[in-house]
């Protein structure tokens, strides 16, 4: 019997999720309504049904999310009958009197970390499952599947635990927690191929649609929700686009596209010469070590 690579990746991810269930007392699955975390939920269904998930779904809402992703999130939690916990960056800003970034390309993405750490503390989560992949970025390429964080959420790349075979060590001290990445070894294309194979429904913004946008620094930014404040040199346009990743509106760019089906989206992604984060994420382009620095500060 020879397993296809998608079967192997699926089996590995299910194994990792069950290790979380077996090794931790209060895990959580971070769920944003984006394609990677949707894939995680699908894998969790395969890992634990007909039982309930041994963890709630948790979303850290920046208040700048696409409505389509939020609607999808709520409908999904309802449909599968699992608990959804939402915590708002807005509340953290108010309660902790955080200074919100202002100016041209201001984003709340960095403030998410504060709310995430507070939420981990509030529910005493000892493990958070996330949909990060090693192919996304070069600091992520170095991270373990079980990534131990101190009480400040910091990742110390020089003190990673050895991780051998399929043996995961989730033993931690009180106050520490572990970020767990079951789809570490998946590429962007693997995720899309898996979504197609498993017939997983995605939010509509992943497919081509007409949308009002601003052209800023050569990128197509959504006007939805008034998150991005238009400036004099921004050009307002309506284009046929889809989103290759779905993150915070303030830092996620759209791609011009006519792909209305999964097949068409996959064809476009196979043909592209630009990486996922390079095309769509404004937050990684600040410096050569932007992601490494954010992870040291507790970012996912």
């Amino acid at each position: 019997m020879k397993l296809d690579y998608l079967d192997q990746l699926e089996s590995e991810a299910i194994h990792i999720m069950r290790e979380v269930a077996g090794q931790f007392e209060r895990p959580a699955l971070l769920f944003s309504g984006g394609k990677d975390s949707i894939t995680l939920v699908h894998l969790a269904l395969k890992a634990f049904r007909p039982g309930k998930f041994p963890f709630p779904l948790v979303h850290i809402d920046t208040g700048h999310n696409f409505q389509e992703a939020l609607d999808y999130r709520d409908a999904m939690a309802e449909r599968i009958g699992e608990k959804l916990i939402v915590r708002y960056v807005e509340d953290t800003i108010r309660e902790k009197k955080l200074k919100e970034p202002t100016g041209r390309n201001a984003t709340r993405n960095g403030l998410q970390t504060f709310t995430l750490l507070d939420t981990i503390e509030e529910f005493e989560f000892d493990a958070c499952i996330g949909g990060a992949r090693r192919d996304e970025e070069k600091a992520r390429a170095k991270e373990r599947v079980f990534s131990v964080r101190d009480e400040f959420g910091s990742w110390d790349p020089k003190r990673q635990r050895p991780e051998l075979w399929n043996l995961y060590n989730g033993r931690i001290h009180k106050g520490e927690n572990v970020r767990v990445f079951p789809i570490s070894n998946w590429t962007e294309l693997d995720v899309w191929n898996y979504i197609r194979r498993e017939k997983i429904q995605l939010p509509s913004i992943y497919f081509a649609h007409d949308r009002e946008l601003l052209i800023r620094d050569g990128k197509l930014m959504a006007t939805a929700g008034g998150v991005i404040k238009p400036e004099a040199d921004d050009q307002r346009v309506t284009r046929r686009v889809r989103f290759r990743t779905v993150g915070d509106i303030s830092c996620t760019a759209a791609s011009e596209s006519t792909a209305e089906t999964l097949d068409a989206v996959i064809d476009e992604i196979q043909a592209t010469r630009i990486s996922e984060r390079g095309e769509t994420r404004m937050d990684d382009q600040l410096s050569e070590a932007a992601m490494e620095d954010r992870k040291k500060g507790g970012y996912f």
């Binding site: 090693r134 192919d135 390429a141 170095k142 790349p157 020089k158 990673q160 070894n185 294309l189």
Partner: peptide, 10 residues
């Protein structure tokens, strides 16, 4: 190189 990195191609 200090730590292991994982890369993917097909």
């Amino acid at each position: 190189t200090i730590d292991v990195a994982y890369r993917y191609f097909q």
